[in-house]
């Protein structure tokens, strides 16, 4: 009589993601964001094909030209095509945003989960360590790390990722502290669940919501931090374009050619907004309690 149970059960496993997807689809803002993010990633991947000029090609006879058919967004002080540089810049900026956040969130969640779950002296040790860590201004730490490792985009990403660790770590710990006291954690212990399983299966899914939003917010922050590093020569190395660098380059000519700062600025804004809205939608979609 119970035989047919297995089949629909197996189907259900797949449909768990289907469920999330179905809920996400209902959120228009999230879907538009997802579309934009996909677009941005495609642009980054196919930059060579899309961009009309190589990013480093200079033309001293045509500096600061206004937008035209030849140069859709004009050129910069060295006569490089702004549109092409924006497109190539997507690669660097997206890497900065996503890879750095992946580093900081992974380390942060691990540290935060350990501190929050085990509590007691483990918690004290980890949190006091983070206090010391955070007493160093984040950007200073970032600069120091990047300088130690040598100026390159890769090192800038690692430096940003590492210096951002305390934010997700603290958030994870706080969130876990409240979930840890729930009776279902005791229930899990009573059925012999190991600590790792309790953390991964029972605590993190219930504690992750606030983190999803803050993580997507941090993507924007990371892009900007990357720009700051580039500004002092520790990030993307010229002539490699990167949105933040482009803004800081345009800073000198802001009064006469403000649009040069505007284009990458708008790109950063759209990217950040898209990630935020997607994160928002994802948080709601991941919560079965909001299923309707």
């Amino acid at each position: 009589m119970r035989k047919p149970v297995t089949k629909p059960e197996q189907k259900r496993k797949k449909s768990k993601f289907g469920d999330i997807w179905r809920r996400l689809k209902k959120n228009k803002a999230a879907m538009i964001s997802l579309f934009i993010i996909t677009l941005i990633i495609l642009v980054a991947v196919f930059a060579d094909i899309i961009a009309p000029y190589p990013y480093e090609q200079q033309d001293y006879s045509a500096t600061y030209v206004s937008p035209s058919l030849q140069h859709p967004l004009g050129t910069d002080k060295l006569g490089r095509d702004t549109f092409s540089r924006l497109i190539y810049g997507t690669r660097q900026s997206i890497q900065l945003g996503i890879v750095a956040i992946a580093i900081s969130t992974t380390i942060g969640i691990t540290i935060g989960a350990i501190a929050g779950y085990y509590g007691g002296w483990t918690d004290n040790l980890v949190m006091r360590g983070l206090d010391i860590y955070q007493s160093i201004p984040m950007f200073l730490l970032c600069v120091t790390l990047a300088a130690l490792m040598g100026p390159s985009l890769k090192n800038a990403i690692i430096a940003i990722g590492i210096s951002m660790v305390p934010i997700p770590a603290r958030m994870m710990r706080a969130s876990i502290l409240s979930v840890r006291e729930m009776e279902y954690i005791e229930a899990a212990k009573a059925i012999n669940a190991k600590n790792l399983r309790i953390i991964l299966k029972h605590i993190i899914p219930n504690a992750i919501s606030p983190l999803i939003v803050s993580t997507t917010m941090s993507i924007g922050m990371n892009i900007l931090a990357g720009a700051q590093l580039s500004f002092i020569g520790l990030g993307a190395q010229p002539p490699l374009p990167e949105w933040g660098t482009m803004i800081s380059d345009a800073r000198n000519v802001m009064r006469d050619h403000g649009e040069l700062a505007l284009y990458p600025g708008v790109c950063i804004m759209i990217t950040v907004l898209a990630f935020n809205l997607l994160g928002d939608g994802l948080r709601d979609a991941l919560d079965p309690r909001l299923k309707n």
């Binding site: 729930m182 009776e183 279902y184 005791e186 229930a187 899990a188 029972h202 899914p205 219930n206 919560d287 079965p288 309690r289």
Partner: peptide
């Protein structure tokens, strides 16, 4: 078996 069937079950 726990007292509170609201907090003794993992909502996820």
């Amino acid at each position: 078996i726990f007292q509170d069937p609201y907090s003794s079950l993992n909502p996820r």
